Computed example of a mutant assay.
Amino acid sequence: MFFVSEDHLILEVLVRVGSAFACGALIGVERQWRGRSAGLRTNTLVCVGAALFVLLSSLTPDDASPSRVAAQVVSGVGFLGAGVIIKEGGSLRGINTAATLWGSAAVGSLCGAGMYIPAAAGVIAIGVGNALLRPVARVVEPKLPPDRTAEEPVDYEFTAICHDGEEAHVRALVVQAMAAEAFSLNGLHSEDIEGTGRVSVVARLTSPGRDDRVFENAVSRLSLERGVTSVRWRVLPHQPVGP
């Protein structure tokens, strides 16, 4: 327990929560300035929330120790951090923001435990990491050789042949399968195969980089559909879209 009287208790709680608020706001200002999804308010609330949980354990020492509560705070913030990570094609965005939230929770836990100097050091370290390490990372990032480029767009043609009555359903399945990925649909058309009672549904798409896995999965999915007699895909020469 950290108090000897009710007045001291109230003052100590105010100091700890106030320091958590200030530390979270300092961390959040940089995130807000850079336009990140978790900015000033989110980092402040995470920091204050972590401090309150640790304070709760200090006020009820018979139920749980502050270190055990802090471990649970880390797990809870992990779920929150996962919400700010966005998948874009083969890359992820928001990992740095999620790590900052994790750091805010650690700073808040330190404030809740009354460890103000480590909390201040944490704020400085997080701020320096976010503000000053960005240009350093760009300098040390490996450069591609002159004869190589980063992933270039790839054009695909996806064809499904089905019975006349299944045309609308197959078109919808093709669009649905590709919409879940980072593909641009350049065209979708159907052609009757004369004298067969079947229709060829052809989709042309562009991917930010080569990803054959998606098409293999689509082939497996559509091959199970009733009325689909053939499914295939191929890579086309990339045709840049003009201005």
Rank of each mutant, 00 (worst) to 15 (best):
Q72W: 10
V73L: 08
G76N: 11
G78S: 14
F79G: 12
F79M: 07
L80F: 15
A82D: 07
G83F: 11
V84F: 09
S91Y: 10
L92G: 02
R93Y: 12
G94L: 01
G94E: 10
N96P: 11
A99E: 09
A99W: 02
T100W: 06
A105S: 15
G108R: 00
S109R: 10
L110C: 11
C111K: 03
G114D: 01
Y116W: 11
A119G: 05
A120F: 07
A120T: 04
V123Q: 00
V123D: 00
V123S: 03
A125L: 12
I126Q: 00
G129M: 04
N130F: 01
A137P: 03
V140Q: 04
P142Y: 06
P146L: 09
D147F: 12
D147N: 13
E151L: 15
V154R: 04
Y156E: 03
E157W: 04
E157H: 07
F158Q: 00
F158C: 07
F158T: 03
I161P: 05
H163G: 12
D164V: 15
G165I: 05
E166P: 03
E167V: 11
H169E: 07
V170I: 14
A172M: 08
Q176Y: 06
Q176M: 09
M178T: 11
A179S: 13
A180E: 15
A182K: 04
S184E: 14
S184Q: 12
L185M: 14
N186Q: 14
L188Y: 05
I193Q: 10
E194T: 10
G195I: 04
R198S: 10
V199K: 11
V199D: 04
S200I: 05
L205T: 00
S207Y: 12
